[in-house]
Design a protein around this nucleic acid. Structure first.
Lengths: 339, 339
DNA sequence: TAGTGAAATGTTATCGTTAACATTCTATCG
DNA sequence: CGATAGAATGTTAACGATAACATTTCACTA
């Protein structure tokens, strides 16, 4: 950015000191009314814009929050961002948004850059798929304010906002078992190292257990979080001899469910007649696809809002506690489960 | 952010000058190999993170780009952001994202804050609905690097990346006229003061003219850019005596079309039998709604990519010209037009 | 062994703003 | 009318990093 008008320029133009100009423009007391007005006038005419970079250097505050999301096209996240925005806008914080593209390496790079930019805090949904938490442990220890949302890393002393994944996953699985009497239920899982992958898998397991159904290894296929992964995972299941195939599919999220639907369609099989299927997220497409998707409705906006609120509290208040905030999701019944 | 390790801390710990530390960590020549290694070691142990704020103050560069979008939930924009991201990530720029929520006031505030944050450039899709361009004229004159995308403000010397709105709008309207023989065609328009609102309206007009159809004032209803607006606008049309009602509706974008569809459904009328309807954007829902929407496919990712590239060129190259970059959209035929 | 030049390191000033302390006004009172 | 408190303004240093210039160190040559 080119040269811009500084306090000193205004001061020189008026024959006063920079300090007086600073005081006038920041509406401090102890400035003569006339002087103040003169300065404000002049500043306007000269087109003065305060330099926040310089201000930040002194104040050690940037009024800036870093947000790292794993995937901007997954409709869930823009909605979360909207929730975050609502809170930060009111408190005059700016958002620096980074998309990690489901790559932990990019995520680390993003976090490092954000820290180096002196953001006042970071909101992150982690793409990490390994169990080595050294990276985040160090971040937290360096007293960087950090709040996880959706995909959390627990046990390192950072707060987290997420929906009750396990419970919801159990509920939707039980719906398949109890309402529809399915016994052969598969799970297209997320990476087990990511909280939501693990939690949703556990919910699925618990539902089976409670109904005394045994888990079939061949029916647990890791699919990642994207459509393509769901497609591939479903193909594997379709390769099983027909008698070994499940009758229902619990998917770790909506994109994976859409991918699986695609594979089912391609194979000439029908939903829900051949396969019942459920998702998780309730993204915008869920009610609109050919067979509307039964899924878990996640209050994304709420997640963003709560996470941002928690972070701002951490930034302001010294004594703010680490917290695990769970937001209740609801089951959204549509046709894909057989209802 | 709490106190962090500075160059000086490292320097003191090792009994050298800050300058040597700076040189070592920035891999400059003229530093003894051993000293350099020692410093790099120490920096790692002490957990040093460079302070970009300080660096920016000296270099007058923040490696940061401001992005202002009118609506983050409109699926078009996240896709644009992805395109921008691709470019900026490679060049090591960070994005500061702001959502103006279709409010010009918020937009101005955002731009001012971004300038004050010393971003190296700004990418913006304007929500402005008034014809007073003083604000942006001043921004451009203050040699802030600025590139518009999608919703542009023209004639003030800023570059712009957008799709061939007028032409595409004309094409889709002509499709209704020539392929389906509709003669009574309405337009749910955007605000006329926004480029895309104006351009798409003009495309619609031109199509009518070329087929010697006269425009009917009652069939031109301003609907804004959102679903709710489309719903309301369509209601107005449905209030007309049935004989005065149009047979086809050209909408300024997809959300407006969805809103209109809702109103049509509520009135117990059928698409495309009672009303043919077209959109503009081809957002994620378009192929999925009850009657799949015939619309204009906008290469959002491409728009983002090109806009970001142009901006980076402006930032780097001194002699970069103002440019109007038009990207070709394509007509996406589905069922809502009667095909 | 003194002299030389390049490499290594150090010092000072600067970016734009503000905190903390210092000085100069000015109005009011005894 | 001088003293004085309080308002108005000014000066200096600092935030952390770096550019520009200054000094020291050291290997090598004449």
């Amino acid at each position: 950015m080119g040269k811009q008008v500084t306090l000193k320029n205004i001061a020189d133009a008026l024959g006063v000191s920079t300090m007086t100009v600073s005081r006038a423009l920041n509406d401090r007391s102890n400035v003569d009314k006339k002087t103040k007005e003169k300065i404000i006038q002049k500043a306007k005419i000269m087109g003065y814009t305060p330099n926040r970079v310089a201000k930040s250097l002194v104040s050690r505050k940037t009024q800036t929050i870093g947000v790292v999301i794993p995937e901007i096209t997954h409709a869930f996240f823009p909605e979360v961002v909207r929730g975050i925005e609502e809170v930060t806008y009111r408190s005059d914080y700016q958002l620096i948004l980074t998309n990690a593209n489901e790559q932990f390496e990019r995520e680390q790079h993003a976090v490092n850059t954000l820290r180096s930019q002196q953001v006042d805090g970071i909101l992150i949904s982690s793409s990490q798929t390994v169990e080595d938490y050294t990276f985040y442990r160090e971040i937290v220890n360096s007293n960087t304010h950090l709040v996880f949302f959706d995909r959390c890393i627990q046990g390192i002393g950072a707060s987290c906002v997420h929906v009750n994944d396990r419970e919801s996953s159990e509920l939707i699985t039980r719906h398949l078992i109890e309402k529809h009497q399915y016994k052969k239920i598969a799970h297209l899982s997320g990476p087990r190292e990511v909280t939501i992958g693990r939690e949703r898998y556990m919910g699925y397991q618990e539902a089976l257990e409670k109904s005394n159904l045994t888990e079939n290894r061949e029916w647990i296929v890791e699919a990642g979080f994207k459509e393509e992964g769901g497609y591939q995972a479903m193909k594997k299941i379709l390769e099983l001899p027909q008698s070994d195939q499940p009758r229902a599919i619990v998917c770790v999220n909506d994109p994976v469910a859409f991918g699986a639907m695609e594979a089912i369609k391609e194979a000439g099989r029908k939903i829900p007649d051949d396969f019942a299927i459920t998702g998780f997220s309730d993204e915008i497409r869920a009610p609109l696809v050919e067979v509307p998707l039964t899924t878990v409705h996640q209050p994304a906006y709420e997640v963003g809002r709560r996470a941002a609120e928690k972070l701002l509290k951490l930034i302001d208040g010294e004594s703010e506690q680490t917290e695990d905030i769970e937001i209740a999701a609801t089951i959204q019944i549509r046709k894909s489960c057989g209802c």
